[in-house]
């Protein structure tokens, strides 16, 4: 196998400063042997054309900056292997959020929903001098919940979020809501459930499971949402 190879891209481009409307740009780039991930290829492309704009930071799948729509599926550029991508590789912004420029989207609505679930521990007992105790089993309940990186791959792949981004909390926000409901140290269970007891905020989830399919961290928001629904039912009876 030769060390250098040329890869074809189709990239969504839009600069409101000069473009009337968005367009798809056909562009190719010669990659080095070390360019293993999509992000490496995009950085290589940007070295050629510095007007290509995208967010990126940690390049190891933990900061959540470089979420985008890759060949029709949401994912992180830094965790997407080039060898698995059919060409031309089609890159679009995350669907359902306003585009600011190229693949950079306005995430205001996404974070608004995250903030709406009160994403912080509530415990009104006087703080003890040392740590609050939590058994390893109770701590284990938080696994699969706290690891969320807020990349928005899930919420922007969810039809319910596309239709009602202002009313439906979305998978990321609901996963965070359950992260606190599941924490034995948290005391705001009933307020948290009240906050979600609404035809839209929680119940717009129809278990389509796109969120599970795209989560780059392998998390399962649908399962967490199911558990919140169970808690709702249990407190009703």
């Amino acid at each position: 196998m030769s060390s250098k190879r040329t890869v074809q891209f189709k990239i969504y481009r839009y600069d409101p400063d000069k473009d009337d409307k968005p367009y798809m740009q056909d562009i190719s780039v010669e990659l080095e042997e070390s360019d293993k991930k999509l992000l490496d290829a995009l950085v290589r492309l940007k070295a050629k054309d510095d007007t290509l704009s995208f967010r990126r930071s940690c390049r190891e799948g933990v900061c959540g900056s470089d979420a985008m729509n890759i060949n029709g599926k949401n994912g992180l550029a830094c965790l997407t292997a080039m060898e698995n991508l059919a060409q031309p590789i089609t890159i679009r912004p995350l669907p359902g959020l306003p585009v600011i420029r190229d693949v950079i989207v306005d995430m205001t609505q996404f974070f608004k929903q995250y903030h709406s679930i009160k994403p912080y521990l509530v415990n009104n007992d006087p703080a003890p001098e040392r740590e609050r105790l939590q058994s390893p089993e109770d701590r284990e309940e938080l696994n699969g919940l706290y690891e969320c990186i807020l990349c928005a791959c899930c919420s922007t792949s969810c039809p319910s979020f596309w239709w009602n981004p202002d009313k439906f909390v979305g998978p990321a926000g609901l996963l965070a809501a359950y992260r606190f409901l599941a924490d034995t140290r948290d005391q705001a269970t009933s307020e948290r459930l009240d906050n979600l007891e609404d035809p839209y905020r929680l119940f717009r989830c129809h278990s389509i499971m796109n969120c599970v399919d795209v989560c780059p961290k392998g998390l399962n928001p649908t399962k967490a949402i199911g558990k919140i629904k169970d808690m709702m039912v249990r407190r009703a009876v």
Binding site: A127, E131, L133, R139, Y146, D183, R185, D186
Partner: peptide
């Protein structure tokens, strides 16, 4: 820990 950080136990 009081802020909610999920330390292992």
């Amino acid at each position: 820990e009081h802020y909610g950080m999920p330390f292992d136990r």
